[in-house]
Design a protein around this nucleic acid. Structure first.
Lengths: 213, 213
DNA sequence: TTGACATCCCTAATGCCATTAGGTTTTCCT
DNA sequence: AGGAAAACCTAATGGCATTAGGGATGTCAA
């Protein structure tokens, strides 16, 4: 057999990398994002700490890989929800997509903190890790643009300003929820359950006839 | 002279405590909130690290003292702006107060991160430290209530929900600004400069005649 | 003025951590 | 089967927070 697979060794390697990242996420969930200890990861995998350096050149590289994975998962959560939606009302679709990624963010607080808060001293995502995050932001913009094109929102909603306002208010709800009631569910959270209210506010502010007073 | 002051020694002690906190803030501003090193603080003060334990029982206690100081400063910033304001329009007053503490938050990112994001693993503010934070939240609520009492906002604006929406949208703008453009000024920041837009959105959503459609 | 005592600051040590250096074993392709 | 590369190890370095315990110093009562 000449073409079994892309190398048995590299496959095993990818698997180990995945395990490292999984364990890292698990430990951060329990101890806090900034409290990640490579020694603890190694212990959990039955390795000696220096062996991890076969897979990542530093702790920051692990944060970086997680940032990238987080952005990919975020994007997927949003896309799947929109594709599965049973409506062709573009504004309702937008609400479904937004709700989906908001729920994902709350269910994955570690990724969220890494991606949206950036509180790890010295960590700056690499261009490769940032790429899917840019894509996710572009998807958000496209969602707004679609609503504009359908005449359901004022063109300003998809402007730089509109996009910034939109991300601010959604991030605000999530930020408050995760800081003050981190263990609540998305539906019950004192802040997260207000996402529809906040979106309603946004949709009204950028209603198609805005400014005609 | 019998009553010079509340003890010479305790005065010196308070001064040292103040210096420790000042240096801690300075270092966090430069290196990141989670990167605070007691050894670095001690070095900066010409002390050996263990000597700091004469003043604080642990690193968390320093975070705690800073949390408390932050909440007090936050409250003061808001109060001073409102008192100095040259208007008796209650809504304009509310906007001035909100703008004042938003600006303060951006100018003091270390305190803000400590107070609003709570990303330090293992840190939970003590009841004493939390007291002024509660007071600050109460002041926010009173500001909304005043606007309601003056008939400028719908009663819902001062409800639990209204308060949560208000803190979410303001925190959202600040959160996005500090995560994505930490070094911008309040006026120029891509997100922070949108505070008036977001507040306008809030005021409109909770207009006195809301619901009468 | 003197003695007692609390305060302040020190050195030494412990046990974590991330990371580097350098060697040995294991795996797998040819 | 041979040989290279990968995977893993131990040992060591220099950082960290924190604890233990001791010496100097300033302050207050007598």
């Amino acid at each position: 057999m000449s073409t079994t697979a892309p190398d048995r060794r590299t496959r095993r390697r990818q698997q180990t990398i995945g395990e490292i990242l999984d364990v890292a996420i698990e430990l951060m969930e329990a101890e806090g994002v900034a409290a990640l200890s490579l020694s603890a990861v190694a212990r959990r995998l039955g390795m000696q700490p220096p062996s991890l350096y076969q897979y990542f050149p530093s702790k920051m590289a692990i944060y970086d890989a997680l940032f990238q994975r987080g952005a990919e998962l975020f994007l997927a959560a949003q896309r799947e929800a929109v594709e599965a939606a049973a409506t062709d009302d573009v504004l309702e679709l937008h609400l479904i997509g937004t709700t989906a990624y908001a729920r994902w963010s709350m269910q994955n607080p570690v990724y969220s903190q890494l991606m949206f808060w950036r509180t790890i001293p010295g960590f700056e995502p690499s261009p490769e890790a940032y790429a899917p995050a840019r894509e996710a932001l572009a998807a958000v913009r496209e969602g707004l643009q679609a609503a504009v094109d359908a005449g359901r929102l004022h063109p300003d909603a998809a402007s730089e300003e509109g996009l910034a306002v939109f991300t601010s208010v959604t991030a605000g709800v999530l930020s408050q929820q995760m800081a003050n009631e981190p263990d609540a569910s998305f539906e019950q959270g004192r802040f997260s359950r207000l996402l529809p209210v906040v979106l309603e506010m946004f949709y009204t502010h950028y209603a198609p006839d805005r400014g005609k007073r």
